[in-house]
């Protein structure tokens, strides 16, 4: 009769001094209910030109089907001397889990500031790119769940874009689209920036077709491509929209532009 109160350990026979892993009522191991990650949607895009780089992103912040905010930028200036980043030369964009993105931005910015204290000069883009990779890899087993991109001008003054995976693999690229609509925008970029699958009409049949001549793009052309890319993404992806934030990095500094996108 007393055995019905089975939580008395003495009545349940010999046992370990500690209890086992959490179990459900049915005796199956209970899963951890806490998931430290979420996806806040949004998309980013970076294109480098001859003497400029454009970093862009939408400003929508989502949780599932809800829009949390219509103005939550994910493209940040990094490594300026002051809090308002007026004299910054490097831009970081982060897409994915926004809290990790902001933690990553704060980390990198602090590192740039300490670099300045120690060396009396700003960090170069390629040094910053390498450092970002190590920061991401340090958290290899509890990653920053973000698709990061770094943009600016290299030592020769040419536009440069570095893109990363969440655990720090990186590569310098001509252009890259990331985030929710990354896979929608990237093929468009291949065609419009790298002139993939563009041939001169009537120049031949099949393999004889001649490729269209590849040209470097001017700044207004790139700005148009960025806007078109996002207009397309907004049309087809629910997590992208509201406002397009564009940061144009030139040797004169960083120009910030906001353009409206569809809010639906």
């Amino acid at each position: 009769m007393a055995a019905m109160f089975s939580q008395n350990p003495l009545m349940n026979g010999p046992n370990y001094s500690f209890s086992d892993a959490p179990k459900t009522a049915r005796g199956e191991p209970r899963e951890h209910a806490f998931n430290p990650y979420t996806d806040n949607g949004g998309s980013t895009l970076a294109i480098s030109g001859a003497d400029f780089t454009i970093m862009a992103g939408d400003t929508r912040h989502t949780s599932g089907y809800s829009i949390n905010s219509r103005m939550s930028p994910k493209v940040f200036k990094i490594g300026g001397t002051t809090a308002n980043q007026d004299d910054a030369t490097i831009v970081l964009s982060v897409c994915g889990f926004a809290a990790d993105g902001e933690a990553l931005r704060d980390r990198l910015d602090t590192i740039c500031k300490i670099y300045r204290y120690r060396h009396g000069k700003p960090m170069s883009l390629n040094a910053c790119a390498k450092r970002l990779s190590t920061i991401l890899y340090q958290k290899r087993f509890f990653p920053y769940y973000t698709h990061a991109m770094l943009g600016g001008l290299d030592d020769e003054g040419k536009g440069a874009v570095y893109s990363y995976d969440p655990v720090g693999s990186y590569e310098r690229e001509q252009c890259r689209a990331g985030g929710a609509a990354g896979s929608l925008i990237m093929p468009f970029l291949d065609n419009q920036v790298n002139f993939k699958n563009q041939y001169i009409p009537g120049s031949g049949e099949g393999h004889d077709l001649k490729e269209r001549e590849r040209r470097t793009l001017s700044r207004p052309q790139v700005e148009t491509i960025v806007k078109d890319a996002f207009d397309g993404a907004v049309e087809r992806h629910i997590e992208v929209g509201d406002t397009l934030q564009m940061l144009i990095i030139t040797k004169e500094g960083i120009e910030e532009v906001f353009l409206p996108l569809k809010k639906d």
């Binding site: 430290p36 979420t38 949390n68 905010s69 219509r70 103005m71 939550s72 889990f97 809290a99 902001e102």
Partner: peptide, 15 residues
Amino acid sequence: AAADLLGSTYSAPSL
């Protein structure tokens, strides 16, 4: 502005 258990933050005219 809002903050949640994951550390996510956002701000809007209404929340």
